[in-house]
Simulated assay, not measured.
Amino acid sequence: MDDRKDVLSAVLDQLDEIGATGTVSIGAVAEAIGARSFATLMLIFALIAVSPASIVPGVTTVVALVEFLLVAQMIAGRRHIWLPDLLSDREIPGERLRSAVLWLRRPIAVVDQILQPRLSFLTEKPCLYIWLFLILALTLVMPFMELVPGTGTVASGLIALVAAAVLTRDGALLILAGLCLGALVWMVRLLGEALF
């Protein structure tokens, strides 16, 4: 994963390979990706929540919990990923995972050609901490987003943008993520006004 070219497509290749084994646990995904690949795992679980696999009830909530733990450990400076058994043992049907990967292939291939190292200081600490704390806050409200169709997908897309930016050292992508975050806040505010 050190090669920045086609890094997102390589993540999909790993997911496809994992899904071929049948029913897959979250712990198996983490183990297959590697104990130190925080940003890669952030991207993988965000992509699962963006894909059609998110129609399964509870997927957005589980992804939010996983992302919270990953980001909290990044902030704490942990070198190895830890997930509680309650999350680690949670399973995803391999067939659904592979169909999600297939659905993501074309848009990810396009994005891969655009991403490149630029404004890299935005993807490194201390600037990175700003994004990590924003994602931490976002994951706390994501379970409630399951009540409003589409908002959880937008939130997961934002997390995917940040993780992809970190993996490719593309600070311009973080700026785009900032614009998306603004749009998400605006959307939630409008929905709140409409409902209450």
Rank of each mutant, 00 (worst) to 15 (best):
residue 143 P to K: 09
residue 109 A to T: 14
residue 43 L to P: 01
residue 165 A to N: 04
residue 142 M to Y: 10
residue 29 V to M: 09
residue 35 A to S: 15
residue 163 A to I: 01
residue 62 V to S: 02
residue 133 F to M: 11
residue 168 T to M: 00
residue 57 P to G: 12
residue 27 G to R: 00
residue 40 T to G: 05
residue 180 C to M: 07
residue 110 V to E: 11
residue 110 V to Y: 11
residue 160 A to N: 10
residue 45 F to R: 05
residue 36 R to L: 03
residue 15 L to A: 10
residue 18 I to M: 09
residue 66 V to W: 01
residue 181 L to K: 05
residue 131 W to P: 00
residue 21 T to Q: 12
residue 27 G to C: 03
residue 44 I to F: 00
residue 101 V to C: 04
residue 106 R to C: 02
residue 63 V to T: 14
residue 115 L to T: 13
residue 64 A to K: 02
residue 71 V to T: 11
residue 163 A to W: 01
residue 155 A to T: 03
residue 188 V to Q: 10
residue 33 I to N: 01
residue 102 L to Y: 01
residue 15 L to P: 07
residue 72 A to S: 14
residue 93 P to Y: 08
residue 173 L to H: 06
residue 22 G to Y: 05
residue 2 D to T: 00
residue 48 I to S: 12
residue 104 L to K: 03
residue 104 L to P: 05
residue 44 I to D: 01
residue 53 A to V: 06
residue 65 L to A: 14
residue 85 D to N: 06
residue 13 D to F: 01
residue 128 L to I: 06
residue 131 W to M: 08
residue 26 I to H: 07
residue 14 Q to A: 14
residue 124 E to V: 13
residue 18 I to G: 02
residue 175 I to D: 00
residue 63 V to M: 09
residue 45 F to Q: 08
residue 111 V to K: 08
residue 103 W to T: 13
residue 67 E to Q: 15
residue 99 S to Q: 12
residue 96 R to G: 14
residue 17 E to I: 03
residue 177 A to D: 03
residue 172 A to G: 15
residue 8 L to R: 07
residue 105 R to C: 12
residue 43 L to M: 06
residue 123 T to M: 03
residue 12 L to S: 10
residue 42 M to H: 06
residue 166 V to D: 01
residue 196 F to K: 04
residue 165 A to F: 04
residue 141 V to G: 03
residue 9 S to A: 14
residue 172 A to D: 08
residue 48 I to F: 11
residue 186 W to K: 12
residue 11 V to M: 11
residue 52 P to M: 07
residue 25 S to C: 06
residue 69 L to T: 01
residue 4 R to I: 13
residue 61 T to S: 15
residue 139 T to D: 12
residue 36 R to K: 14
residue 31 E to A: 15
residue 39 A to M: 01
residue 118 R to W: 03
residue 177 A to S: 15
residue 123 T to R: 04
